[in-house]
Design a binder for these strands. Sequence first.
RNA 1: GCUCGUGUAGUGUAGUUCGGUCCAUCAUGACGGACUCUCGAUCCGUCGACCCGGGUUCAAAUCCCGGCACGAGCACCA
Length: 490
Amino acid sequence: MEIFAPDALEREKHRKIEGLKELPGDTDSVVLRFAPNPNGPLTLGHSRGVVINSEYAKMHGGKVVLRFDDTDTKVKPPLPEAYQWIEDEYEWLAGRPADVIVRASDRMPVYLEFARKLLSEGHCYVCKCSAEEFRKYRESKVECPCRSKSVSENLSDWNSMNNGEFGEGDAVVRVRTDMTLPNPALRDWPALRIQHSPHPMVGGRYRVWPLLDFQSAIEDHEQGVTHIVRGKDLMDSTRKQTLLYEHLGWNYPETLYWGRVKVHEFGGFSTSSMRSSIETGEREGWGDLRLPTIQSLRRRGFDARALREFWIELGVTQKDISVPMQTIESMNSSVLDAKTERRSFVASPILLEIKGINGTVVESPRHPDGEIEGFRTWTLSNSIYIQQTDCGNVSLRLKEFADISISGSIGKIESIERSDDRPIVQWLPKEESCEANLYVPEGDKVNVIDGLLEDCDLVVGNVYQLERVGFAVLEEISDTGVAKLVWLHS
RNA sequence: GCUCGUGUAGUGUAGUUCGGUCCAUCAUGACGGACUCUCGAUCCGUCGACCCGGGUUCAAAUCCCGGCACGAGCACCA
């Protein structure tokens, strides 16, 4: 029977399947969500959430809710501009906009109403213990005195919380679970607290704001979320929220977890610490070349497809990992190489006089493998530039042109055809070049390399591959004709 | 301290549910070579791993027991 390729059957288990593993549970109409705090723009870390959720939605024909978790007015307050940034960055990363967009701060009436309902049903209570006092109760598995208050007393305290009678820290709403639960994190966890500082988007309208576990749990249900993919640091959140869902008679969504990711070059991705580095002036802004923000990566010329491939390749595993930027760069190179025109960039240029080449026309391909058709055409005078670092050689091959010998600042043509295996270097005729500064982020610094860029059909915003140097974005050309290049990678 | 999670080549990842088809997949990397008028691309080859110790079994990366290591939560942050 098995005459044909039994080997192929045997190898089945060996083959690595492409893409993400299927989502568990019922996948008939999948609703996922991506829920960032808009206290800054998206980082490389957030891009995992965008990519994984949007890919799963694509895979199962589902939807993604982009939800702004902006219910903290104090510790990590929202940045008003960030809402739009994040919507745009989401679309760039996912390749399409989010299906639904909600702001937690717009949904406050819903959360407050659920809190009141839970209070009146006895599933929550207003706790007036201080954080330190409650910690002792939690650690010793003892119920706090507030737990035994009547419903009417709780509702009256709830009113005091909302009407400003209670100050910040005076009271908190807790979900009644069980103080003897083995996991201390789950014991009567806090659901809402008082914050009097105004919210940047909705002002001073509310005095009581929900905490993540409460807001997220309610909103996931309201939006019909079927699958949650989150960091495994939120495993206890799932457990807390499941206890709340039990009070409400709801079923908790399927939940997947991923581990912590660090990129060698950046470490973790803390929005708050980036924000402070900008405020102190250590960084120029969210698009600073040294920052792991999506703004910065976009600016440097990373392609969203490379980021997508990267996160899909890592998949959703619970391992804590640390990856080198090189992995992303290598994926970016394979996306970009075929569609990037070549240009000559000569760093620290040295002038060379060559007699008898005036008027000669040199043609170089826009892409060496013909992926992009056409040529860059130069008309020479007798002056050309080569890179200082190439001057140590007496014999050079000027790429696509001629073999030369150098003596001092004079070059002499030895052969138009390639005659030996002397080094091939990129070069530029004086008339075909413009001044250029290449900005290269390196650790805490941004190095600026002065040089000349080939001035041929330059389009601001394009990524070019600078021959023998690497990929860079032409960010702008000044009024005086100086090109600003931003380094991508080699 | 309590609770939870994770350990496969340098870095990631497949395989672990239902033990054999796994002398363990793929990518990236390193090294060597071919090709090329870029130090790019392409092609070929090589290197390199099941955390440790027991047990069950004809057979263990996979099951059981015991260690060890690393990470996270126990915030009136998300």
